[in-house]
Design a binder for these strands. Sequence first.
DNA 1: CGCGCATGTGAAGAAACGCTCATATGAGCG
DNA 2: CGCTCATATGAGCGTTTCTTCACATGCGCG
Lengths: 105, 105
Amino acid sequence: MAALPAETAIEGLAQVFGLLSDPGRLRLMAALLEGGEMCVCDLAAACGQSESSVSHALRLLRLNRVVKVRRSGRMAYYSLADSHVRMLFDLGLTHVAHDAAGAHD
Amino acid sequence: MAALPAETAIEGLAQVFGLLSDPGRLRLMAALLEGGEMCVCDLAAACGQSESSVSHALRLLRLNRVVKVRRSGRMAYYSLADSHVRMLFDLGLTHVAHDAAGAHD
DNA sequence: CGCGCATGTGAAGAAACGCTCATATGAGCG
DNA sequence: CGCTCATATGAGCGTTTCTTCACATGCGCG
């Protein structure tokens, strides 16, 4: 990684932030931040989404190592894979708060 | 903010991360992180985008207080509004690096 | 003082995204 | 053993988002 590592990095960043740009996925992550570990149906109920869309969303998050899954019988228990999400949340909220306080469109 | 501040916060977070989910905008922000303050045409040249799309992108970023503008004659010099972007960048890159190292799909 | 460059904006087409419906797999239970 | 529940996946559709083109504004220069 010498010439333009920025290019690959930029693409990766866009992908990661893209995962965080959907309210539905954000709710799932927020629920996991609070609940620690939850199964798909509880997640769906807690976030007010269909189990299908939750499953689709979790697949994306799983493929990007944002969440991890533990299986027990026919249940799948999801949890956050690392602490980056919490930091990203807090940092994002800081900007949102600052933004709302300052001004907006 | 008592009952469900989460809902408003979630929407705000999604919007902020949505701004960061586009490679074009990310490149602009990266250029500003390095260059400090740049005009639209230099930004367009540095990021390999049309001046029009740069102008559109900068408008979004401006409306969300991510960048600020200083006008001098017919030129418009843009710079980052605060340090959140740099922190978000670093944190995002940490996840990308960790993700790439661990595994992916 | 009119022409050109830097920038800003609106509209339209293309592409990406998320949601829902239908269906598949696999585990537990009667 | 067959049925049902929890989850996973694929296809189709509606909506949003990005890019481009065309044109508007405003400053500076000859």
